[in-house]
Design a protein around this nucleic acid. Structure first.
Length: 321
DNA sequence: CGCATATCCTGACCGC
DNA sequence: TGCGGTCAGGATATGC
């Protein structure tokens, strides 16, 4: 359940502890953790060894570390990442990056070499300076690491003419609401043209990235909208309210260091955020709504839960999950 | 093509 | 105490 705020907390940790360091040996303890690296474990290790981490970037729930042979700033390396992406647009190759997704239960931890292996340690990355290792720990192995080609997409969707530099795998992932190039009118137009349910659309990373089940429910509650509303009937003003709520809840969660229900969701030093105390509806079925005191309800949708307030978030006559 | 659903995985938890 | 069933859900493959 790490969503955008939790992943951003991790990105900042990587920025502080890993950027500028040279990778030495990489040990893969569980092949599933690197399954998205199609060329295999040996190729992954070979591509990482000797590389210097240039930066720590994020789009939505994805993280990537551009790689290079020289120290960051010394050569022509990745500028801040901007804009959207589309696989059919002209592109130029701009090096490689270590791509990471935490999935449901993934952690990137900075650990001393002397620290005992974590129970679900999947990948260990050692550095030439002999300092703390970067460890990928993942109980459920939905997440993983890969080395991916970085490309410049010259004409992404939305307003024409922007440039974006991001891993090839992320070409279909939409900008997230915290990116400077996040294009709200474009997102709203696409959402209203869609024939689907509102929460389902919010979770679609090709429309807007970074939103998962927790923050979708929280933003819908703040905007007083029901997740089973049909997208095609939505008013522009309702959607503007919704995305204002998304931005608000992301910002507050980030300030709190992210949300954590248990020890699975932690920063690179293993510490949990405390935003779970601020959740209004998620995981609170039966407890009173903070606005109107009616008991929070729980619906099942896409084989998962959706929490909402029956008073503040009136259900549509014909729900469309 | 657009939209919906099945699938991957492991540990916590619950009822018996 | 253990055992089977259920739940947690991000992204992708598959199906309609």
């Amino acid at each position: 359940m790490p969503e955008l705020p939790e992943v951003e907390v991790v990105r900042r940790g990587l920025q502080q502890w890993v950027v500028g360091r040279g990778i030495d040996d990489v040990e893969v303890l569980h092949p599933r953790a690197v399954r998205r690296h199609r060329a295999g474990t040996a190729d992954l290790r070979a591509r990482l060894r000797g590389q210097i981490v240039q930066a720590a970037h994020r789009r939505g729930k994805y993280l990537w570390l551009p790689l290079g042979q020289t120290a960051p700033g010394a050569g022509p390396d990745a500028p801040p990442n901007h804009g959207g992406g589309h696989p059919d647009r002209p592109e130029a190759i701009a090096g490689e990056a270590l791509l990471a997704h935490l999935g449901m239960s993934g952690q990137l931890l900075v650990s001393d070499a002397a620290d005992p292996d974590q129970t679900h340690l999947r990948v260990r990355i050692g550095f030439a300076d002999g300092g703390p290792q970067l460890r990928f720990v993942d109980q459920r192995t939905f997440g993983g690491l890969a080395v991916d080609e970085v490309i410049d997409l010259l004409r992404p969707p939305g307003p024409v003419g922007r440039q974006s530099r991001l891993p090839r795998t992320l070409a279909h992932i939409a900008p997230d609401p915290l990116e400077p190039d996040f294009d709200l009118p474009w997102v709203i137009a696409r959402l209203r043209a869609r024939h689907s349910g509102l929460k389902r659309a919010l979770l679609d990373q090709t429309l807007v990235s970074g939103i998962g089940n927790i923050y979708a429910d929280e933003a819908l509650w703040r905007a007083r909208l029901h997740g089973a509303r049909r997208t095609e009937g939505m008013r522009r003003s309702e959607l503007e309210r919704l995305f204002a709520a998304v931005l608000e809840v992301f910002t507050e969660a980030l300030a709190a260091g992210g949300t954590s229900f248990d020890s699975l969701y932690v920063n690179v030093n293993g510490a949990s955020g405390y935003f779970d105390r601020a959740l209004a509806v998620y995981g609170r079925a039966g407890r009173p709504c903070q606005r109107c005191a009616r008991p929070v309800r729980r619906d099942t949708f896409m084989n998962r839960s959706a929490f909402s307030c029956p008073g503040c978030q009136p259900a549509p006559r014909v729900p469309r999950w």
